[in-house]
Computed example of a mutant assay.
Amino acid sequence: MDAEFRPYRSLLYIPGSKERALDKARGLPVDAILFDLEDAVTPDAKATARETLKEALAAGGYGARARIIRVNGLDTPWGADDVAALKGAGADAFLLPKVNRAADIDALADLLGDDTPIWAMMETPQAIFHAAEIAAHPRVQGFVAGTNDLAKELGCRDRADRLPLQMALQTILMAARAHGVIAADGVYNQYKDEDGLRAECEQGRDLGFDGKTLIHPAQVAIANACFAPTDAEIDLARRQIAAHAEVETTGQGVAVVDGKIVENLHVETAKKTLAKAEAIAQMA
């Protein structure tokens, strides 16, 4: 699938050490799998997790889902070995934690030795202040908001409206949009709280995030629904495109749909909405 149109509504973390979870992920309706070698794997299991994940990727069966490997930080005893073991194993991208500057992306790119895309965990104050620099790096394809680590670093309180994190979240989005980078919102920790998850997904969607990182398969359906165009949005997009095309053909007046003027920028947004809907349909 063309990366430009690939949906990223749901990005599910799967421990690289758990064969059963790796197998189950093949049948989940997620847009992307974040194969995790960092937080989800204990230090004594790091080495075996690499081999378990490598075997799972070799076996395939993940379909159109984006396969992204989160390695350990390169300043840890495991990061470089993760890259050495998994580069060339069939991942669509590598996700680097604790990115602070563009130089951190350079370090991973050097270890990879190829043109595999890199995603950056945006989870430190330095990352936020250098977000534009990181997004501008030619190897960076995506950002993941590391909201748990950001909250820890800031010492802020846990609020349903995420007010203390808004500056960081919007800076991540501004940098991502300025440089054509995918932006995934952080995780929602209470996986049994469907109403809370839905509210946070809706907030992330309204801010402009492409999708939500998830910690449990039970969260997938809500994320997919929240970050997909609604039937009403698809219908409006089609009517906006048609109305604008008719006006361009006749050269008379301006296009108006539902009492609102339709300009070129609205048509561009409408076309993106339809392209996203089509890409989602292809994932089914």
Rank of each mutant, 00 (worst) to 15 (best):
A3F: 12
E4I: 11
S10P: 03
S10R: 01
R20V: 06
G27E: 06
A32R: 02
F35P: 04
E38P: 00
A40F: 07
V41S: 04
T48P: 00
T52V: 09
L53W: 07
L53D: 05
E55T: 14
D75R: 11
D82Q: 04
V83R: 01
A85Y: 08
D92I: 01
L96R: 07
K98D: 08
V99N: 09
N100H: 14
D104Q: 09
D110Q: 15
I118W: 01
I118C: 10
T124P: 04
F129A: 15
A132T: 11
I134V: 13
I134H: 05
A135L: 06
R139Y: 07
R139W: 10
V140H: 05
Q141A: 15
L150T: 03
R159S: 13
M167L: 13
Q170F: 07
Q170D: 08
D185M: 03
G186V: 02
Y188M: 05
Y188Q: 02
D195G: 11
A199Y: 10
E200I: 01
T213C: 10
T230L: 04
T230P: 00
I234F: 01
I241K: 02
E248F: 05
K260I: 02
I261H: 09
V267L: 08
E268K: 13
K271T: 07
K272A: 14
L274A: 06
A277M: 00
